[in-house]
Simulated scan of single mutants.
Amino acid sequence: MKIKLKSPLDMHLHLREGEMLKLVAPLTAQTFAGAIIMPNLVPPVDNLPRLLAYREEILAATAGEVFEPYMTLFFRNYTREELEAAREHITAIKLYPAGITTNSEGGVKELADAEATLALMEELGIPLLVHGETNGFVMDREREFLSVYEQIATKFPRLKIVMEHITTAHAVDLLDRFENLHATVTAHHLIITLDDVAGGMLNPHLFCKPIAKRPTDRDALLAAALRAHPKLSLGTDSAPHPQHKKECCGCAAGVFTAPITLALMADLFAKHDALDKLQAFVSGNAQQIYGVTPPEKIVTLRDTAMTIPASYGDVIPMWAGKQLGWSVVG
């Protein structure tokens, strides 16, 4: 059996810089027509010259592939002039609570301090992407942050808000309560639970933030994805780290799925008799939510087994060495 996906999109992607970018960017560009690029570099992508230079670096690394990098700015207090100048070059602005994840030390400390910029974004039609976690108990961080989403969605009803990489049933429920709330979900959060990360021997290559949650949460996310909930789209949060930064004390947070995501999703949706919903989940919904028109690209997958490589350079993918029931053709 074969399926064809039209212009698949990854609405949450980490590419890093330098040699790491040169390694991982082509692995996404081979199977995706475009991706939203995260700005939490060092220093962050928080001004237009930095953003334009980063985009050129991505385009150079993906030369020869049909691929559009949808750029984002790191949230800070921007002036109207800065946002007006940047608007045609960005797809969204990404808000990180200060210190909550990798390279987020310069994030927002108090929501009140962000409201002037949020008002400008609402006026100018610039979407807000949010890493929604508190500093509370690790299993409760996303649930505790949901009240912040409610606060922003109520105060700025015309601001398009995307809850990034949701991991809980509570977040799925919140999607239908506010017209301006949307969400992305990762491939790995549709498959794993905390048991896979730490239920037996610790698996550092499945450790991420937000951390994988309970089976009931995973099942709620999966049910929403399998029916292609119109406010939900694929955002892999694929986050490469060299092996020595994962297999160590102080393990870096991030799951690397970029080169295997579409095969993973075809395998998962096929097992649940939902292949007819995969196109919307990996492209159609995102086009509607973000108002983007990706370049034309057809990716063909077939139900032929593939073995996930042990590594890509010095980066270990999710489920390295395991077999999937589907693979990308060509």
Rank of each mutant, 00 (worst) to 15 (best):
E115H: 09
H131I: 15
I152V: 09
G199C: 05
G125K: 12
P157N: 07
L181K: 02
C208S: 12
I211W: 00
K213P: 15
P230I: 12
I211A: 01
L202G: 08
D195A: 03
M139I: 13
V148P: 03
M121L: 10
S233Q: 06
I166S: 02
L159S: 07
E123N: 00
A119E: 07
Q151D: 10
R218N: 13
G199F: 05
A114N: 14
M163A: 11
N203I: 05
D113I: 04
T184D: 04
G235Y: 09
R214C: 06
E179F: 04
E123H: 06
L124A: 06
T216L: 08
E142K: 01
L181V: 14
H229I: 11
T167I: 09
E110R: 15
E133H: 03
R143C: 00
Q151V: 05
D140K: 03
I166L: 13
L111T: 02
T117W: 10
K231N: 13
F137N: 06
A112I: 11
F145E: 13
L120F: 07
V162R: 13
H189T: 13
A169S: 13
L120A: 03
T184P: 01
P230S: 05
D140G: 05
P210G: 01
L124Q: 01
L159Q: 07
H182E: 03
L120Q: 10
V197E: 04
E144S: 03
E115M: 15
R143N: 15
T216Q: 15
H205W: 14
L128D: 04
T193S: 00
D196V: 03
R177L: 15
A171T: 06
F178L: 02
E142G: 01
V172A: 11
I192K: 06
R227Q: 14
D196E: 12
D219S: 02
G136K: 08
V197L: 02
V108A: 00
A198Y: 00
L129V: 13
K109T: 13
K109I: 08
T117P: 09
G125N: 08
V130M: 03
K209R: 10
I166A: 07
R141S: 05
F178R: 11
I161D: 02
V162S: 14
V130N: 00
S238N: 04
L206S: 14
T216V: 10
Y149L: 12
L128A: 06
A220W: 03
E150T: 01
D176Y: 11
G132V: 09
P210D: 10
M201A: 09
L175A: 08
F156A: 02
K155I: 04
G132H: 04
H189P: 09
P127L: 09
R218L: 12
E123L: 00
T134K: 08
L202K: 07
N180W: 08
A119L: 04
H182D: 01
F178Y: 09
T154Q: 10
I191P: 00
R227F: 12
V108G: 07
L232F: 08
L111P: 11
E133R: 08
V130W: 06
F145I: 03
T134H: 11
T167G: 01
G107W: 10
A116R: 05
P204V: 12
K160H: 02
R227E: 13
A116W: 00
E110Y: 11
K213R: 15
S233T: 07
H131Y: 06
T216R: 12
